[in-house]
Simulated assay, not measured.
Amino acid sequence: MTVPERIIQSSDALKVFPLPSAVLFPHSVIPLHIFEPRYRDMVGDALSSDQVMALAQLEPGWETHYAGRPPVQEMMCVGLIVWHEKLEDGRYNLLLQGVCRARMVAELPSERLYREMRVELLPDPSYHGPEEEQLRQAVLELAGRVPPSFSEGLLPAVARANGGTLADVVAAAIIPEPERRQELLSELDVRVRLQAVIDEVGELLGRLQPMRPTGPLN
């Protein structure tokens, strides 16, 4: 079964890992350490079936209800477990690769400890516009002001990506704030999302000084 087929099949009962401060974008990867028993069960079930699970942001005020089922933001990212390591005590380290946006339709009653939801998958429509080249140029300028260790992985990805994927790849790399990441995850208009990420790169450039050359000049 292909990855798109697995994602579609999972949408009727999607395994969801809610977190208060982590937002996954499609086409990016996030490392996770799974230690709670309910989510260790979830990862074990995912690994024994389709390797699919979603990451969802908890709504504000979750602190007093975390042991139960506090509300989550309706927009989330469905991902695929692309690497995992099971530790001796049952915890997991894993890498979750974002695949597709999804909107929660309903939370399902379940006898399991972890949460499952029926979702609507929201793949990006095809888009080509001037914002793509504007964003690529902005990232090139950014690459000249940051250490090579930051830009060497981003530049090839930006060169390959188009449309909504381009916006997501750059957003995942440069935006740390969970609230802003969630806003961009929730933005379904690709043109608006591209422009928003262009603005984010511009603000970052405004805070950075051009890198000074090191070593001899001649």
Rank of each mutant, 00 (worst) to 15 (best):
L96M: 07
Q97H: 13
Q97F: 05
Q97L: 08
Q97S: 11
G98W: 06
V99T: 10
V99F: 12
C100W: 05
R101T: 08
R101M: 10
A102T: 04
A102M: 08
R103V: 07
M104L: 15
V105S: 10
V105R: 15
A106E: 15
A106Q: 14
E107S: 13
L108H: 09
P109Y: 01
P109T: 05
E111N: 13
E111D: 15
E111Q: 13
R112F: 11
L113D: 13
R115P: 01
R115T: 05
R115A: 11
M117V: 12
M117C: 11
M117L: 05
R118H: 03
V119W: 00
V119Q: 00
E120V: 04
E120C: 04
E120Y: 02
E120L: 12
L122S: 01
L122W: 00
L122Q: 09
P123R: 12
P123C: 12
D124Y: 11
S126W: 10
S126E: 15
S126K: 13
S126R: 13
S126G: 11
G129P: 09
G129A: 09
G129E: 10
P130C: 06
P130G: 14
E131S: 13
E132N: 10
E132L: 07
E133L: 06
E133W: 03
Q137Y: 06
Q137C: 05
Q137T: 10
V139R: 00
V139H: 02
V139W: 01
V139F: 02
L140M: 08
L140Q: 15
E141A: 12
L142K: 06
L142E: 01
A143H: 01
G144S: 15
R145Q: 12
V146E: 14
P147W: 10
P148E: 14
P148Q: 12
P148K: 02
P148H: 04
S149H: 10
S149G: 05
F150N: 00
S151N: 10
G153N: 10
G153Y: 04
L154K: 02
L154Y: 03
L155M: 12
L155S: 03
L155P: 03
L155W: 05
P156K: 03
P156V: 04
P156Y: 07
V158D: 07
V158W: 02
R160G: 07
R160W: 06
R160K: 14
R160H: 07
A161T: 03
N162L: 10
N162I: 05
N162T: 13
G164W: 06
G164E: 07
G164F: 11
T165H: 13
L166V: 01
L166A: 01
L166C: 04
A167I: 02
V170E: 08
V170C: 08
A171D: 05
A171M: 04
A171S: 12
A172V: 02
A172K: 02
A172E: 03
A173Q: 09
I174L: 11
I175G: 02
I175Y: 07
E177A: 13
E177K: 05
P178E: 01
